[in-house]
Amino acid sequence: MQNSHSGVNQLGGVFVNGRPLPDSTRQKIVELAHSGARPCDISRILQVSNGCVSKILGRYYETGSIRPRAIGGSKPRVATPEVVSKIAQYKRECPSIFAWEIRDRLLSEGVCTNDNIPSVSSINRVLRNLASEKQQMGADGMYDKLRMLNGQTGSWGTRPGWYPGTSVPGQPTQDGCQQQEGGGENTNSISSNGEDSDEAQMRLQLKRKLQRNRTSFTQEQIEALEKEFERTHYPDVFARERLAAKIDLPEARIQVWFSNRRAKWRREEKLRNQRRQASNTPSHIPISSSFSTSVYQPIPQPTTPVSSFTSGSMLGRTDTALTNTYSALPPMPSFTMANNLPMQPPVPSQTSSYSCMLPTSPSVNGRSYDTYTPPHMQTHMNSQPMGTSGTTSTGLISPGVSVPVQVPGSEPDMSQYWPRLQ
């Protein structure tokens, strides 16, 4: 039975679970980093996980050691009161100082060594604690504590007292930064006198190289990059290397530039699409467009005044059976039934097929058609009795279509119309 579990990581490298990497692998990681390889490249070359490479390099940059820390136990506290007071002093002298600059000053002034120097995250935590204590304490208590930490007896009751030896409130920041720059020169002199001055200088240079600022491109470089971006948004590694040799930039910087440029292009394309949609959409909808001609068919113009009344309900007709019959029939052209047409008796099958359309009241044959006459024609229609054979009435077949029909004066039988409509 094995005491430890061995495995293979996602890159194909072998590791022992819970145990640190061998010293030979750690040394190779540092050597590759000094030669300029990126952590992701080191991870692929040595088949070590990216997190492990970053952790080893980060500890090497901070402490200069590649040895693993002790497994188990607690780390001794490195942010001692003396170190905290120095950090507060540096922050007062130059409020814009960075944590890694404070760390360098602690090393250069001999406050800490490589073994007990606090990390950048520890210094940031100390600065946050100082800021929170400043908010919790009152103004007087804060000034007393700062005077105690600074070891001075001057008056701290006013704002300019934060910067000793100065009279203009805006000047101390520059003086403090100048003092810090002077301390940086002392850093070089002190570290050069040490035993491991060369190694420390190499480590600091490598650290500065990794902690780079934003790349500033010249106009020629920007023009070359934009020209390549117009050709393709995704250049391959050969195109990037050719462009890197042409404009004297690292291939990694060119790759990052193209990634950022593609993101910018997507944002601009989104804005262009929004403007295009806004320009195509009308600002207001016309009133006429809300009524579609496919839904509402136009009603033909009436030929006679009587045809303006298109349904039985508008003429005072309360018989719903006839109203439904007229509205359900398709529109037909106007025609006239003459008196000489043969009077065919209704076929029983045809009569039964339209039995649902006729009223059940037996008085329908005896009703006159003056009910369908509009009010303004009552006088004219009353002067001509319906009993004469020459009287013409208008029957409504569908809305908007008038059918003048000659009705025999002897017997106005409704059943004569249905064979004609089939």
Results as ranks from 00 to 15, higher is better:
3 N>P: 13
8 V>G: 04
8 V>F: 08
10 Q>M: 08
11 L>Y: 13
11 L>R: 06
12 G>H: 02
12 G>M: 03
12 G>R: 02
12 G>K: 03
13 G>P: 00
18 G>F: 02
18 G>N: 00
21 L>G: 03
22 P>A: 05
24 S>D: 08
26 R>P: 02
27 Q>W: 13
28 K>W: 05
28 K>C: 08
30 V>H: 02
30 V>P: 02
33 A>E: 00
34 H>Y: 11
36 G>D: 06
37 A>H: 15
38 R>W: 03
39 P>W: 03
39 P>H: 09
39 P>L: 07
42 I>Y: 03
43 S>M: 01
44 R>G: 03
44 R>F: 05
45 I>C: 08
45 I>R: 14
46 L>Q: 04
46 L>A: 01
47 Q>A: 10
50 N>L: 06
50 N>R: 12
51 G>W: 00
51 G>V: 00
52 C>R: 01
52 C>V: 07
52 C>K: 02
53 V>N: 03
54 S>K: 03
55 K>N: 03
56 I>W: 07
58 G>E: 00
59 R>P: 02
59 R>D: 05
62 E>M: 10
63 T>R: 03
64 G>P: 03
65 S>R: 05
65 S>P: 05
65 S>W: 02
65 S>I: 06
65 S>N: 05
67 R>S: 09
68 P>C: 03
68 P>Q: 02
69 R>G: 06
70 A>F: 07
71 I>E: 02
71 I>G: 13
72 G>A: 04
74 S>N: 01
74 S>M: 04
75 K>D: 01
76 P>Q: 02
77 R>G: 01
77 R>F: 03
79 A>N: 14
80 T>C: 04
82 E>S: 09
83 V>I: 06
84 V>N: 06
85 S>C: 10
86 K>G: 09
87 I>V: 08
88 A>N: 13
89 Q>K: 12
89 Q>D: 08
89 Q>F: 13
89 Q>L: 09
92 R>I: 09
92 R>M: 13
93 E>D: 09
94 C>R: 15
94 C>A: 13
94 C>Y: 11
94 C>L: 12
95 P>Y: 11
96 S>Q: 09
100 W>A: 07
101 E>F: 06
101 E>P: 05
102 I>Y: 07
102 I>L: 12
104 D>I: 09
104 D>G: 09
105 R>S: 11
105 R>L: 12
106 L>T: 04
107 L>N: 14
107 L>C: 08
108 S>K: 13
109 E>H: 12
111 V>D: 10
111 V>W: 08
112 C>H: 05
114 N>F: 11
115 D>C: 10
116 N>L: 11
116 N>F: 09
116 N>T: 08
117 I>L: 15
117 I>C: 14
117 I>Q: 15
118 P>A: 08
118 P>F: 00
119 S>L: 00
119 S>P: 02
119 S>R: 03
120 V>G: 08
120 V>I: 09
123 I>M: 04
123 I>K: 02
124 N>S: 07
124 N>T: 05
125 R>W: 01
125 R>F: 04
125 R>T: 00
125 R>L: 05
127 L>G: 12
128 R>V: 02
130 L>V: 11
130 L>Q: 10
130 L>A: 15
131 A>D: 07
132 S>A: 13
134 K>V: 11
134 K>F: 10
135 Q>W: 09
135 Q>H: 10
138 G>W: 09
142 M>K: 12
142 M>Y: 13
143 Y>H: 12
143 Y>V: 12
143 Y>D: 11
145 K>I: 14
145 K>H: 14
146 L>I: 13
148 M>L: 11
149 L>F: 11
150 N>D: 14
